[in-house]
Design a protein around this nucleic acid. Structure first.
Length: 691
DNA sequence: GCAAGGTC
């Protein structure tokens, strides 16, 4: 008599199998590509098999993608709906086979909406209608003790209300996203005769709207002039920059008066304010915080960081990275991780310092995750040579982990007030008095000490280099991939696992371009059209409403059917109106698509003439593609660079750190994208950093 | 070649 235990993913299956086996040594087996485990617990045989996330998905019954509105959706195995999901069939087949000789069924996927829903679909379709008799393991961490106790206290059934809410989420997202995307795509295709994907959705829509709103703010911004006073002070033979008490002076007259009054005057130190403060260690990484830190330190996009972290996780160097937790439960065994890290010469001293402490208590953050702890190093050391990006990210995670256990840093700030002919200037210094956690995080600290020489009140000092400078107020900054991700997090749209991908989609659709995301005409038009016809889908309120409906469904106060019916009633007239306006919308979009396609061919500024742009061209003679300068058409620059002939070439959005030439992103089929400098003679070409 | 959500 066997019991089938269904898990969300292979790593979880493994942990669960180990925890539940009486001896802690489950049999490791394989059915084709699918790993599974046989554990023995109290005389019972447990077959523990993982899924790989969702194996089933919703798809419109009408497969012709030119048709809309479509409101009939069905759940199908993912490989039937998505290309590139071939392995899903093997997983479903394996689970079906294993379930055939199982008597009892236990759902052990993550205890959240998606976990419950994906488990339900597998029990229902792959296991042959076992959803009603399956029991449920409820756990929030994959620790041995919690897994055992959740097995001992099995819930009698899977959580149907939560599943109904999950199904609702899938269907609503599909109904809105697919219909509106089809409407826009079809309109453009009919007008131009060319296919180009124009997509939107519950998360894409509002995210693009953030960018468009910012773009408009920037366009409407009127810069105002202001003046500032620059000056230095000489103390003990050293020059220090000082700040005038008012950072911004609104009139030139006032600025000039101050400058006149202070130039060639001596200053008198009238006040010295010394402040000491403690700074707590940084909290361990959740995915979003890691993505932001990696962007700020290394300029890695959130997507790249997610990809690299995924690889580190698959090689067992770090814990599960798709987490929103900033907490490190004791059960991960801080000491054993540090004892393992100590084997790396770089961490020997640091890990040793922590191991000498009596108590190891991490400074945890506020954010939590029901399914996973914060990201931490497993203590394993790399078995192969890591790429530069893998090494940097691993090092960052290791040091952040250690820093979280460090002592608070003690810092001192000094503010010296200098009176110059009645005007006050500030000289600011800062220094670290006690490093504490900074010792561990040193390579990633960006603030330098400014150490002031001994000064005392009443001292007379020399003012140097006093000048006035005119500047203009600046418009709000454009989003970059990192700040956009933060905005999404703050607004609660998307998930930790999808946000980076959705931002990437906005780039590939040609809605935005560049590191400081500039919105294209196409992006503006899409938002404009949706704003006129269907403002709900570009509003964050849409997600709020969905969440409310899901909550009500879970409480039993709402039915899935009613929520869907309301959505259909809302969307039907919208889609009909879109269809009626197809011509006009098609024209508007098609023109913008052309411009967007053109923009996507631009790789960066021409490093030779400095005025033109490098653009992807095709040789008339050979048909080969290459990079040429747009100034060529004005007969002022004829520089050209060869391009790889295979794969998709896009702008990397940055210049080479070695030679300053623009870089391309080359995506070969089935491979990870490469970022390459366009300069064939780049000095960096000798060395290797492919990622 | 459509969404967003899991996961590899």
């Amino acid at each position: 008599m066997k019991t089938l235990l269904l898990c969300e993913k292979p790593s979880a299956a493994r942990r669960i199998a180990m925890a539940l086996d009486d001896e802690g040594h489950p049999l490791e087996k394989k059915l084709g590509i699918v790993p599974y485990y046989e554990s023995r617990r109290n005389g019972k045989i447990l077959i523990i098999v993982p899924a790989i996330g969702h194996l089933y998905t919703v798809t419109p019954k009408i497969r012709n993608r030119d048709v809309y509105p479509v409101f009939d959706f069905e759940w199908v195995p993912r490989h039937e709906a998505e290309r590139g999901a071939k392995e899903i069939k093997k997983w479903i087949d394996a689970i079906s086979k294993l379930s055939a000789d199982a008597e009892d069924f236990i759902l052990a996927t993550d205890y959240d909406i998606e976990g419950a829903t994906l488990g339900y679909m597998i029990l229902k379709y792959a296991c042959g209608g076992k959803e009603d008799r399956a029991k449920r393991m409820k756990f929030s961490t994959l620790t041995t003790s919690e897994l055992r106790s959740s097995y001992d206290k099995l819930l009698d059934s899977i959580e149907f209300p939560m599943i109904e809410a999950g199904i609702c989420r899938h269907l609503l997202d599909a109904i809105y996203g697919i219909n509106l995307s089809r409407a826009l795509t079809v309109a453009a295709k009919k007008w131009s005769g060319r296919y180009s994907t124009i997509s939107t959705g519950r998360v894409q829509g509002p995210t693009l709207k953030f960018l468009v709103d910012r773009e408009k703010e920037i366009n409407c911004f009127v810069p105002l002039p202001f003046w500032r006073i620059n000056a230095k002070v000489e103390i003990a033979g050293h020059l220090f920059t000082i700040e005038f008490e008012k950072k911004v002076i609104k009139s030139q007259k006032e600025a000039t008066e101050i400058a006149e009054a202070c130039r060639d005057k001596k200053g008198k130190i009238v006040n010295i304010e010394v402040r000491e403060f403690r700074q707590k260690p940084p909290v361990p990484f959740d995915l979003g915080t890691l993505q932001r830190e990696a962007y700020s330190l290394f300029k890695y996009t959130p997507r790249r960081t997610a990809d690299v972290a995924e690889r580190l996780y698959l090689e067992a160097l770090i814990s599960y990275p798709r987490t929103s937790s900033q907490k490190l439960p004791k059960s991960i065994n801080y000491r054993s991780i540090l004892e393992s890290l100590i084997r790396d010469s770089r961490y020997k001293k640091l890990a040793g310092m922590l191991l000498d402490k009596k108590d190891l208590v991490p400074n945890e953050g506020r954010k939590d995750d029901p399914a996973h702890p914060a990201i931490y190093p497993t203590g394993n050391l790399p078995e192969r040579k890591l790429s530069v990006s893998e090494m940097r990210l691993w090092d960052l995670i290791v040091r952040r982990f250690m820093a979280a256990f460090g002592e608070p840093a003690v810092k001192q700030s000094v503010k010296v007030s200098i009176d110059v002919n009645g005007y006050i200037f500030y000289l600011k210094g800062r220094r670290v008095l006690k490093e504490g956690w900074i010792t561990f995080y040193r390579p990633f600290m960006r603030v330098e000490d400014i150490i002031l020489p001994p000064i005392k009140e009443g001292q007379i000092v020399e003012i140097k280099d006093l000048s006035i400078e005119m500047d203009f107020t600046k418009p709000p900054a454009r989003y970059n991939p990192s700040s956009l991700l933060k905005r999404m997090e703050d607004e609660g749209i998307g998930t930790k696992a999808t946000r980076a991908e959705i931002i990437d989609t906005l780039y590939t659709r040609g809605y935005i371009s560049g590191d400081r995301a500039v919105v294209s005409e196409l992006g503006l038009d899409v938002i404009d059209i949706l704003d006129r016809h269907c403002p709900e889908v570009i509003s964050v309120e849409f997600t709020r409403e969905l969440e409310e409906s899901m909550e009500k469904i879970q409480e039993g106060n709402e039915k899935l059917e009613n929520v869907l019916e309301r959505a259909v009633n809302k969307l039907t007239p919208v889609l009909l109106r879109l269809k009626k306006s197809e011509k006009q919308i098609g024209e508007e979009l098609s023109l913008a698509i052309r411009e967007s396609r053109m923009n996507q061919r631009i790789i960066g500024d021409c490093p030779v003439c400095g005025t033109g742009k490098l653009i992807i061209l095709r040789s008339r003679k050979t048909g080969k593609r290459f990079l040429g300068c747009t100034s060529f058409f004005k007969h002022s620059c004829n520089v050209s660079f060869p391009l790889p002939q295979k794969g998709k070439v896009t702008a990397a959005g940055k210049v080479c750190s070695e030679c300053g030439f623009p870089m391309i992103r080359l995506k070969l089929k089935g491979k990870r994208p490469l970022v390459i400098c366009v300069n064939p003679n780049c000095p960096g070409k000798e060395r290797k950093d492919s990622r």
